[in-house]
């Protein structure tokens, strides 16, 4: 029966699995201690479980408080991914991009990509320095996804409009490294969005 309470608390939780399991283990240990306390004071186990459930509070309220911690942890994880990956990807593009004058259209698209990366990087830096707390996971997730979307869109257009002579010889490496970075950032950003959405659902 004590499992019922824990399962109800656990069901809506989303976020880093290790922290989630650790928090639930701690809550479970405390709950069992409360039940043992009740039994020691003469209650039947069923009565003790009912009393512990009432004392611990509505599973929804406890889950909401736990989800806030999971959201904060996921926000920091995604923020670290963004502050490491985005500058690395920007430098990669600058180092391995085509030489010579790329033309106005390519320059504008490249600057647009830089601006999207800078916005996501700024949000991540604010999270890591503790200046952005509310909706931190959603902010990091949304800006991470947007920056990757802009980068993919712009690079596709650049590939279509750039002259063949502009193509650098290191293009395969550039594309592979970009793809790895894009998948890494996108996966983390999407996780952050899911965790942020769970916070909105749980309360």
């Amino acid at each position: 029966m004590s499992g019922d309470y824990l399962e109800t608390v656990a069901a809506p939780l989303r976020g880093p699995r290790r922290l989630r399991d650790d928090m639930l283990a701690e809550l479970g240990d405390g709950f069992e201690e409360a039940v043992a306390d009740g039994v020691e004071h003469g209650l039947s186990r069923d009565e003790a479980v009912r009393r512990a459930s009432a004392d611990f509070g509505s599973p929804g309220v406890v889950a909401a408080a736990m989800q806030r911690e999971l959201e904060a942890a996921q926000a920091r994880r995604t923020a670290w991914t963004l502050v490491i990956a985005l500058p690395a990807m920007t430098v990669l593009w600058d180092l391995l991009g085509g030489r010579g004058d790329p033309g106005l259209a390519v320059t504008v698209l490249a600057r647009l990509t830089d601006a999207a990366s800078a916005a996501a990087f700024t949000a991540a830096a604010l999270v890591l320095t503790g200046r952005l707390d509310r909706r931190a996971a959603s902010a990091c997730g949304a800006l991470g996804v947007v920056s990757m979307g802009v980068a993919l869109g712009c690079s596709t257009v650049i590939a279509l409009i750039a002259e063949p002579s502009d193509t650098p010889p290191t293009l395969p490496f550039l594309m592979l490294a970009s793809a790895v970075g894009t998948v890494w950032v996108s996966a983390s950003a999407l996780r952050a969005l899911r965790v942020g959405a769970a916070r909105a659902r749980v309360g």
Binding site: M23, G30, F56, G57, V61, V62, M66, R68, E69
Partner: peptide
């Protein structure tokens, strides 16, 4: 530990503090 903290809150408040004790655990993580 968490359960002892819950007990201390109850005891020191003269049983006047009525809070959902399950929320003490996430508060400790915070």
């Amino acid at each position: 530990h968490g359960y002892a903290i819950i007990g201390a809150l109850r005891e020191r408040s003269g049983e006047q503090l009525d809070l959902p004790s399950g929320t003490v655990y996430p508060a400790l993580r915070r």
